[in-house]
């Protein structure tokens, strides 16, 4: 299956981003309660996030956004699509 194309390259699920890698959000989960909640936390298309970690056994994914860590459930992290950024090209981590 070919990954969906987005401006800037192919997008992957946030959970599949390696730890420490950056990505620009290309697609958010379909409209429902959780989309509102994510957006209220500042997660929206175009924002650059760093994946900090993913817990085993379908545990949550922790990401860093504007200097803040946010943990989201495994299922949601599969429907947040990001375009991976190279370290040099991507926005640096806010406090690095």
């Amino acid at each position: 299956m070919t990954p969906p194309r987005h401006p800037g390259g192919p997008a992957v699920a946030l959970r599949d981003l390696p730890n420490g890698a950056f990505g620009r959000i290309a697609e958010m989960p379909a409209k429902d309660g959780c989309a509102e909640r994510l957006e209220a936390l500042g997660l929206r298309v175009g924002k650059v996030v760093e994946k900090v970690s993913g817990m085993p056994f379908h545990g949550p994914v922790t990401l860093q956004l504007d200097g803040r860590q946010i943990a989201i459930g495994w299922k949601i992290s599969s429907s947040v699509l990001v375009v991976p950024l190279s370290r040099s090209g991507g926005a640096p981590r806010h406090h690095e």
């Binding site: 909640r37 943990a71 495994w74």
Partner: peptide, 10 residues
């Protein structure tokens, strides 16, 4: 089961 969405404070 609902999904976790939580801000982690510093």
């Amino acid at each position: 089961s609902p999904e976790l969405i939580v801000e982690i404070p510093p």
